[in-house]
Amino acid sequence: MNGWLVAAATLLVLGVGPALWGAATGPVRRRVVAQNLATLLVCLVMLLLAQGYARPAYIDLGLVLSVLGPAGTLVYARLLADELAAVPPTARVARAMTTLSVAAPPLVLPLCVVTGPGRSLAKLLVIGALLMAGNTVSGRAMAGGAHLQRETHDG
């Protein structure tokens, strides 16, 4: 078991475990945030596993999750809109999501350095960019109700 696999195991225990708890309990808004966080973390776990098992082909798993994960979150944001608008995520949650979306790409960087130039590096960079954009946007979509309400109060 090498360092990459240890990192993946740590991320599973400290990240995905709590996210599962968050998605299984509490109000809807917390569950949606937890689910979004879980897709982000599992995407990183996939990349770490690809490096740990020395199988560049496994990067495709992360690539697919980096586009479908935010799409899934947008599905919840769209179809649970009324429940999210009734109890919108607090500003703290929205901030945490933005922080995470900015924090994710640097986690891809060490993988990029180890991979070296080539097709895998290009994929990793694309995944990093997609994760950043996707999580910023899904954070915004979840807080969408809050934004709108504030706008109407102001106006």
């Binding site: 690539l63 697919v64 586009v67 479908l68 935010p70 799409a71 947008l74 944001a77 769209r78 997609l130 954009a133 996707g134 910023t136 946007v137 915004r140 979509a141 969408g144 934004h147 709108l148």
Partner: peptide, 22 residues
């Protein structure tokens, strides 16, 4: 029609071809 936050809409329009390509 439903109101969608413009950045979310832009993200979807940009990601659509990317996802299709993947």
């Amino acid at each position: 029609p439903v109101h969608v936050d413009p950045p979310v809409r832009r993200y979807a329009l940009i990601t659509l071809p990317v996802t299709l390509l993947i």
